[in-house]
């Protein structure tokens, strides 16, 4: 990445001049806004996590907030619970959302498919809606009181499987995960679909000429080519899932009931930071939770890049 000094054209011209004004012009505005309203606040938050604030007095406490978070009983059980739930939430997305997205993308990209534009538009629609709407709708649909899902299952002869899914500890998180999958399946679908459309026809044709059946064509030609996209989708899912907050907040409130069974890192952060009902919020503890989320996401991405991305890269076209 470090460049040899002898490289030609614009950059050598740049080095001669004291200030490369065109770079400043192009990069300056974006960098200024980004540094001021994103990088600085995030760093400030990291620093804040090393302090404790009591009655307006702030004092440096080092890693004490983190030690409290992972070892003090009052905090640690909530923290580990939120983390475990978050992994469950993520795994459900990986196992359900991305395969469904892949399937829909493959179907949508079938040659000469009629109405593919309409399908694409419709299936992507839930992604466009805000959680305020989505939370309300799904509570209405799943509510045992108004009976929509129950009637539906009744017509399929499955009504004895119906339960107050959103209200039971054992099923609330899974149900919310599925709602989230329903909302966001459009994103992996679109990204994979776009990659599939990008596969040059001649590659596919060549494999057909070589006598590969469609299944083999998919398995040996298309799949390797869309693997980088699937990898990107996975990483986007990971990041999005570990930031998830809105849906849980809209449906279950900040207490993420029943009995914290739907608590994710995002809701835990919110409660710690802003407090809830009679529990007072703490900016410094909140900052500590935010910092841990930051680290978890970072470690997740590093692991991913290290173990997965490296192997996939070579297939890129």
């Amino acid at each position: 990445m470090t460049l040899p000094k002898s490289k030609s054209t614009p950059e050598s011209a740049v080095e001669k001049k004291p200030i490369p004004w065109h770079i400043v012009f192009f990069l300056g505005p974006a960098l200024l806004i980004y540094l001021t309203f994103s990088v600085y606040p995030l760093l400030d938050t990291l620093i804040l996590s090393l302090y404790d604030e009591q009655k307006g007095q702030s004092s440096f406490v080092g890693l004490q907030n983190f030690i409290t978070l992972i070892s003090d009983d009052n905090w640690s059980s909530a923290f580990w619970n939120a983390l475990a739930n978050n992994f469950q939430f993520f795994i459900i997305h990986m196992l359900v959302q991305n395969p469904i997205g892949l399937l829909l993308a493959v179907l949508l990209s079938s040659p000469k498919l009629r109405f593919s534009g309409s399908y694409r538009t419709f299936i992507f629609m839930p992604t466009m809606l805000s959680v305020v709407i989505i939370g309300f709708v799904w509570q209405l649909l799943l509510s045992p009181i108004w009976g929509i899902s129950e009637n539906f299952l009744y017509h399929l002869g499955l009504d004895h499987y119906f339960d107050a899914w959103l209200g039971k500890e054992s099923s609330a998180l899974i149900t919310l995960s599925f709602i989230s999958v329903w909302q966001f399946v459009g994103i992996p679908m679109m990204l994979i679909y776009a990659t599939l459309l990008n596969i040059p026809d001649d590659i596919v044709d060549a494999s057909v000429v070589d006598g590969a059946n469609p299944m083999q064509t998919f398995w040996y030609i298309k799949l390797p080519l869309i693997l980088p996209t699937i990898a990107m989708v996975s990483i986007l899912t990971f990041v999005a899932n570990f930031n998830a907050f809105e849906l849980i907040y809209a449906v279950k409130g900040a207490l993420a009931g029943p009995n914290f069974s739907t608590d994710l890192m995002g809701t835990f952060f919110y409660r710690t930071f802003f407090g809830f009902q009679l529990q007072e919020g703490s900016a410094t503890m909140g900052a500590a939770v935010a910092t841990l989320m930051f680290l978890i996401i970072l470690v997740g991405i590093m692991l991913f890049l290290f173990f997965v991305q490296r192997r996939i890269q070579r297939f890129q076209f």
């Binding site: 980004y34 994103s38 600085y40 938050t45 952060f269």
Partner: peptide, 23 residues
């Protein structure tokens, strides 16, 4: 700078809310 921007994809700006508010 490229790295800084890349980090921004992964780290939600929301985590800096307190400071943004103060700012």
């Amino acid at each position: 700078i490229t790295f800084l921007f890349a980090m921004g994809i992964m780290i939600p700006i929301r985590l800096g809310t307190v400071s943004i508010l103060r700012l």
